[in-house]
């Protein structure tokens, strides 16, 4: 395939826009985290996030989060148009503070889990998932 000068120009614009997008999404992720933690410091111990390294289909990516003793766990997908994925709040009869579900990922990105502990502290874990086909449709 041959590129005309016009094609090349459009491609350059396209890639510039694509490069600018993650920055905007990143700001939204920070906002969501701040809303959940109230700006408190976030540790890294005591939470596990299980997600596949490579997901063929971004429409259903199985994930599992677990944070023993946590009150609530929030899951974020940093590269999605809206980063929030789900918030799990555990009641007194939850035997383990863990849950598994299936999520949509728009493309290769970091999945982040943040747990709120009963003493008011927060811990986070993240994992990169490589997505072959994105899950946000046209």
């Amino acid at each position: 395939m041959n590129f005309t000068r016009r094609d090349t120009l459009f491609m350059a614009i396209g890639s510039a826009v694509a490069a600018a997008l993650p920055l905007r999404a990143f700001a939204a992720v920070e906002d969501d985290i701040a809303a959940f933690t109230g700006g408190a410091a976030v540790g890294t111990e005591g939470i596990t996030l299980i997600a596949p390294e490579i997901a063929e289909n971004g429409n259903t990516v199985p994930i599992e989060v677990s944070a023993p003793g946590a009150v609530a766990i929030m899951v974020l997908a940093a590269g999605n148009p809206t980063p929030a994925v789900a918030t799990f709040t555990f009641g007194p009869l939850a035997a383990a503070q863990s849950a598994a579900t299936r999520i949509r990922l728009a493309g290769t990105q970091d999945v982040i889990a943040i747990a709120k502990m009963p003493d008011g502290s927060f811990v986070r874990a993240s994992q990169e998932v490589k997505v072959t086909i994105g899950g946000c449709g046209g």
């Binding site: 429409n59 259903t60 990922l105």
Partner: peptide, 13 residues
């Protein structure tokens, strides 16, 4: 008594 209460966003499959 509550076991679990989940808030779902559009990113759930």
């Amino acid at each position: 008594e509550t076991v679990i209460d989940i808030t779902l966003e559009p990113a759930i499959s």
